[in-house]
Design a binder for these strands. Structure first.
Lengths: 121, 121
DNA sequence: GTGAGACATCGACACCTGTCGATATTCTCC
DNA sequence: GGAGAATATCGACAGGTGTCGATGTCTCAC
């Protein structure tokens, strides 16, 4: 397959989705199906034991960030599986990634978690 | 099959699980696997578009309660499916059920939702 | 450039979950 | 007690998801 060159993009600043701090409030009466799907998508991202542990581990890490190799052992899962879970959290906008050299450092996006919390309150 | 008599219990007051208002905080460092599983179980209950809509509909209903027949049409799902989703919410302790006559009225358990919200904050 | 290490992606598999129609259960009312 | 209505349960099916080993893609050090 013709491998396109695909130059590495500059260290991503993370949160592309930072412009939408909150979702339609759960208390605002008849939640539309489309909104419910969006919300459920984000909630499903944290509704997994491994990913909850990842969030906990990242938050507890010094500097508030952790690389994959720091997370594999505490989770007791294989490296590909941990990468997979981190990607799910990344796609949901709950964590941000920052490559430094060979390492990929992940940190939480607190606004995103706060928005989720506010939604349930 | 020998149908045991199974007399109907008095109208359940709901929240058997009311004695445990909150879970291990997500911010309290290394979340144990067992705790993560418990948490994920509750989160998975609300990480579904149909169930989010159910919560929204019940909250918006007059009196803060709704019976199944009020929920089937707005959701656009079959009655068995709606019953299934309500059971999931019930098992997670997020709603309570109260039978009056042939009708089953569901209402939210706000403390449970608040505890979830606090956990993410 | 070459080798080694960190991470991402792929393909495959088992298991879970949402959905439905059919049916059972439980109540009310005559 | 028998008919009818509201709800719960059952069995089956399709689609989604977590997990792994194997492999690809970068980056750094020499």
């Amino acid at each position: 397959m013709a491998t396109t060159v695909q130059r590495h993009s500059p260290p991503t600043s993370g949160q592309e989705a930072g412009s939408e701090p909150c979702w339609p409030a759960l208390s605002e009466a008849p939640l539309r199906r489309a909104d419910a799907e969006t919300l459920a998508g984000v909630l499903r991202a944290i509704a997994d034991p491994a990913r909850l542990q990842l969030i906990s581990l990242i938050q507890a890490a010094r500097g508030g960030e952790a690389c994959v190799c720091d997370l594999v052992d505490p989770l007791g899962l294989s490296q590909p599986t941990v990468s997979h879970h981190l990607k799910v959290l990344l796609d949901a906008g709950l964590v941000s990634r920052c490559r430094r050299g060979s390492w990929a450092y992940y940190r939480l996006v607190p606004e995103r978690l706060a928005a989720l919390a506010q939604l349930l309150a």
